[in-house]
Nucleic acid binder design. Structure first.
Lengths: 349, 349
DNA sequence: TTGACAGGCTTAAACGTTAAAGCTAGTGTC
DNA sequence: GACACTAGCTTTAACGTTTAAGCCTGTCAA
């Protein structure tokens, strides 16, 4: 039992396949009578257009590709989710790839998407090597590519960034304002997976600027490198606590490391925020649910997903006019103050 | 600049497209000399097969569809993630749909997947109306459909289930063993989104059986209905605490509600587990990170994703032999005891 | 009466790939 | 020398759509 095709409908209605196609696609010129007859046959026989054939003929696919380095990261999940809704709303389909923090997997994922003739691509975080993307835009000059939280040096790629320098500055200044005098930082990795994300270095720069503007000296001994994961935050914190002069506040480059740091503080029998004040970055859902609530810089996840979808739609709609224009958009993270810096005053349980 | 096609390669190498196709697909009969020549041209010109054309000709797509009711639910995210890896490993592509807890969206997502000629379908949770799936298996009798945590009454659909009756039983018995005498339950919704998931009713049944086997009376006043979300757990707990005789233990049908319940207990100035012992269900990542750690029934998420991928591969490999066989697999949830029932003995911080 | 024109359809050629069937030259067999 | 056989190709017809071009038939203006 083959699926119903335009031919089947055409035979049944004694018209040509072109006419049936016109009805399916809502062309103007079909007479109301024929249109009704064909429409009835479509409903009765249960016809569904074959997007492969359609795509082949129209020389464009119907899928938008998205590559993410780790879907279990709530930051990415939320972006993918809002992206998926937007993509569906415009009648397309989402092809999802999880590169599992491995650049080689990201590259093979990208090839698969290229072959499936995607009509647009969103790359989130540090999931695809620059070289591979360069090859992609060369092979498909008309396909819009959007990078979230990664600033590729490729002219055809539109970056959507969060101003992490400012975010790091605000986070650190908040700690200063809360009375901290020795502020440590747990950074992202300087090499390997995640090291190339836009925010990694910027958060550190913001931290340094805030220290400078507050007249505090920068102590390299208070900077520990993590890898954005829970365990590395815990280990980094343990290391910081073992210093001769431990810090009284810590700015972690993301929430997962901040949460890891939190358990290390607890394990050491110390209290947050009295002994150690703590700020994270991302505002993952968990940060509002734990006790004490984690003060953090909220990333505009929904906005990023929506903006990506909006850009894709615009690019696709304007296709035919050569290459898509490059757009660079900057979003900002907002401070969400919770108990990990403010303490348990009634307003911030 | 059109993408390179088989024709371009054929012309360049003075062979027919059939030969080039044979090289691309690794057919045996091509002479080593020709193979080398063609292979070189492929590399030099940067050829990538067009999966739309290939799929059209072979009468099968290259994508596996997955529909999930809410991607931000970590339980689903982990399944999708392991599924995506398995799908990529077999050279296919993942088409992801998030139905946003709306059955009508799930239905339109399913239609989109149908049109894109998916080669297999995984439906996770309560995301697609049974009627729509029935139509799908009628339209595509050869496409294997796998349902995770949902037991559709459709012969062609293979369900992958977790024995939640037993899980509910073990969870409740654990509370009994920890000394609780009045055990309440926060259930899933009895109607609307999520109400049709396989586990919902089963967890409640297991709870009742454990009470009966422990010789404890079942008190309907200790059962409150939630909707699987954080806030509903918090509200349900508040309601339970306001009873004349509040419970000394609560079994929540999932972790998110248990976490909500936890904040309600804290807000009431009570302690976990001394005043209220708490058990959840799912073992979302957060449950191990909060304080106190949440005792919960661990769902075998990776196993479910892998099993789904394995079944799909088997079905697809055996295609041609008519309809895919229906497989029903049952997995089990395992108790992970943490501080929310055991207290802060050194072993369970 | 002729021609122009428009409405409503059909024809036919693609889109890039695969696969069955056919062809050719060379080898081996008796 | 006729025959079969094989290795290594080519030819050709699809797969299900779309779309440009063409073909009728009827209407209307001149």
């Amino acid at each position: 039992m083959r699926p119903v095709t335009l031919h089947d409908l055409a035979k049944r209605c004694n018209v040509s396949t072109a006419t049936v196609s016109a009805v399916v696609n809502g062309a103007e010129w079909v007479s109301p009578k024929t249109r009704r007859r064909v429409q009835r046959a479509i409903d009765e026989m249960g016809y569904h257009p074959n997007q492969l054939a359609r795509g082949l003929k129209r020389r464009e696919g119907h899928a938008v590709g998205v590559i993410v380095s780790d879907l279990t990261n709530p930051f990415f999940t939320q972006i993918v989710r809002s992206l998926s809704h937007a993509v569906r709303a415009s009648g397309r389909t989402l092809s999802l790839c999880d590169s599992d923090h491995r650049l080689d997997l990201g590259e093979s994922n990208l090839r698969a998407l290229l072959e499936s003739q995607i009509i647009g691509l969103v790359v989130i975080g540090d999931s695809v090597p620059e070289r591979a993307l360069r090859a992609f835009v060369r092979a498909r000059p008309r396909v819009p590519v959007i990078a979230i939280e990664r600033d590729y040096r490729i002219a055809q790629i539109s970056p959507l960034l969060v101003d992490s320098e400012h975010g790091g500055f605000v986070a650190t200044r908040h700690l200063v304002e809360c009375g901290s005098r020795r502020i440590a930082m747990i950074t992202g990795p300087s090499s390997g997976a995640g090291s190339a994300t836009y925010g990694r270095a910027k958060r550190f720069e913001g931290y340094q600027r805030a220290l400078a503007e507050s007249g505090m000296e920068f102590d390299p001994g208070l900077v520990v490198e993590g890898n954005f994961r829970f365990e590395s935050g815990r280990d980094a914190m343990t290391q910081l606590l073992s210093l001769r002069r431990p810090p009284d506040a810590v700015f972690a480059a993301n929430d997962m490391m901040a949460l890891g740091a939190m358990t290390a503080v607890r394990d050491a029998g110390l209290s947050i925020p009295d002994d150690i004040a703590l700020v994270g970055f991302d505002n993952v859902p968990m940060s509002s649910l734990i006790t004490p609530g984690l003060t953090t810089m909220a990333m505009p996840m929904g906005e990023l997903g929506d903006a990506a979808a909006r850009l894709l739609d615009a690019h696709i709609a304007a296709s035919g006019d050569g290459e898509p224009p490059r757009v660079r958009e900057m979003f900002s993270a907002e401070l969400v103050a919770r108990a990990s810096t403010l303490g348990t005053s009634p307003a911030f349980t």
